[in-house]
């Protein structure tokens, strides 16, 4: 079943990229996504039921809005630090703990953290994320864990796990 889902997604992606529905194009796309399915499908989709669940899509959209908003904030943050004559930076690497369990969720969390203001994921070891932070605002692990993961962890937990 997950092979079928992966094949359909691959074919849809191909058709969007080429944006032309003709018979040779669909055949070429089917062949390409079949090859990709055989190689990669076993790594994705622990269950297809999650993929078609509308509640998860709703939380995904909420997450997307939060993510885009924090991206825009991140840009103004970097612009402020760069253009300020004194450059207010206080960088360092901090360790935070995540409650997310699956690999995919951790990957999404790490990517979200990279795009949020002032933080950059350096490494993931087990449940610990190592974050390079451009301006360390607190020395208390609980406070900065909440500051960095913030809303993302909650929403990712809702739509992935």
């Amino acid at each position: 079943m997950k092979y079928v889902a992966f094949f359909i997604l691959g074919l849809a992606f191909w058709l969007l990229i080429t944006f032309r529905i003709t018979v040779p194009n669909v055949i070429a796309g089917s062949a390409a996504s079949l090859i990709c399915t055989l190689i990669f499908a076993r790594y994705y989709f622990s269950s297809v039921g999650k993929l078609v669940d509308p509640r998860r899509w709703f939380w995904f959209l909420v997450y997307l809005f939060v993510f885009i908003w924090s991206c825009i904030k991140a840009n103004f943050d970097v612009a402020y630090r760069v253009l300020h004559p004194k450059m207010p930076i206080k960088p360092g690497i901090v360790k935070i703990k995540t409650v997310l369990k699956s690999e995919f969720a951790k990957m999404l969390l790490a990517n979200s953290i990279t795009m949020t203001p002032g933080t950059l994921t350096v490494d993931i070891i087990g449940d610990d994320l190592y974050i390079h932070w451009i301006y360390i605002r607190s020395q208390d692990p609980e406070v900065y864990t909440k500051m960095i993961t913030g809303a993302f962890e909650r929403y990712i937990k809702k739509f992935v796990e």
């Binding site: 206080k90 960088p91 690497i93 360790k95 990279t114 994921t121 490494d123």
Partner: peptide, 30 residues
């Protein structure tokens, strides 16, 4: 994002020092 992660991790393992302004480094022990 994945490229930034790979670059920064590779840089750290290669031994590039952080600047003097840095105040904290938890990754050293790991």
């Amino acid at each position: 994002t994945v490229a930034a992660h790979a670059l920064v991790r590779g840089t750290y393992h290669f031994g590039v020092k952080m600047s003097d302004k840095s105040v904290k480094d938890d990754y050293k022990e790991a």
